[in-house]
Design a protein around this nucleic acid. Structure first.
Lengths: 187, 187
DNA sequence: TCATAATTGTGATGTTTGTCACACAATAGT
DNA sequence: ACTATTGTGTGACAAACATCACAATTATGA
């Protein structure tokens, strides 16, 4: 479990023991309980997080008070309010634990230092960012092309595990439908 | 006009004349006519494009034969089917000119070489990729939080120029509503 | 310039989805 | 074990949006 980050990075670039130790020295380990907020809307965002275990939701609370889930973050995912993190502005989203969660966090300073001092990691971050961009485009496409029922079925196919770990009202919020509609879609 | 790319890069990192010449040597200039395809669904995607002038649409043709526009690309935008480009798979989207368009294209080889040989550009590409990811998240959020009418008004506010350059049926396709609904929303 | 194609507006109608209301089930904390 | 809280299912109704049909307008090209 201690080297989950290493395995994750080595899917993109190989690392020696020393290199991994150097990388790891830029992170700090944090633990959160269920329902804890890692990022709160309106506060400043100083870190980006790698999920070791547990489950997070990145969400936006609209003026109507409704919860809109931009993404879930499971084991091996990177998450933050990236807009706020990279531009050092206040969070427009919150990052909250759905389960007890362990993360490795990296500050923007350390992120920049790591990228600047260690080309392998700049390459890794670039790959990850591109992958994130592509994943977001896929999600946009599903809104453009698919009905609520189709989006539900796509999610069920792609991340069946979510249906066991996440209350359905949150899945509804992720899919962009009301919980009542989601309930009716499932049969 | 010839140094539009340079100005664009220098918004992120400064470049000497020599450095810019080096960067530029990795690109080739291409011109396309209205309605030309730069990328066709099903073909391989060997390049990523920087728009010097003109206007493109990145779209997906569903099984129903409908056009779903993932994004428009105007002056100073980078566009490609990034999933296909980075993983060297077949295009799932098409990239087509709405207007006569001039681009600078870079192959994946040159992209990787440029990033590897010239840290400033790897940094630049990382910044751009992060910005793209953030922009996509904003778009997801607008689908989650906003009605068709609200999305229409957001688009009108953010890119009024599109309403002069793009047929409304394409805007409808971008917003995810029928052209009839869009027509009714506009008054 | 004229004919053709592409785009736009609008009514009538049906489908999908949201909202409100309430009962019931599951979960968490003491 | 027992409340309080949180989550789920379902009916009735309203709102948003899609679809079809057709007329009107605006580009486009030989």
């Amino acid at each position: 479990m201690g080297d989950r980050l290493r395995k994750h990075i080595e899917e993109v670039v190989p690392l020696s023991d020393d290199e991994y130790a150097f990388v790891l020295s830029h992170f700090s380990k944090e633990a959160y309980g269920k329902n804890d907020f890692i990022i709160q809307q309106g506060e400043s965002v100083n870190h980006c997080y790698f999920v070791i275990s547990g489950l997070l939701k990145l969400d936006y609370n609209g003026l109507d008070g409704k919860d809109h889930i931009i993404s879930f973050a499971m084991e091996n995912w990177w998450e933050s309010d990236f807009a706020a993190f990279f531009t050092q502005t206040k969070a427009q989203m919150s990052l909250q634990c759905i389960e007890e969660t362990h993360v490795l966090s990296i500050s923007l300073n350390n992120y920049n230092k790591l990228a600047a001092d260690f080309p392998k990691m700049e390459y890794f971050f670039l790959k990850k960012s591109n992958a994130g961009h592509i994943a977001s485009q896929r999600r946009i496409l599903s809104f453009l092309t698919s009905s609520a029922k189709e989006r539900y079925e796509q999610l069920l196919e792609q991340y069946p595990i979510l249906f066991q770990r996440v209350p359905k009202m949150l899945l509804a919020s992720y899919l962009g439908v009301s919980r009542e509609t989601l309930s009716r879609l499932s049969h």
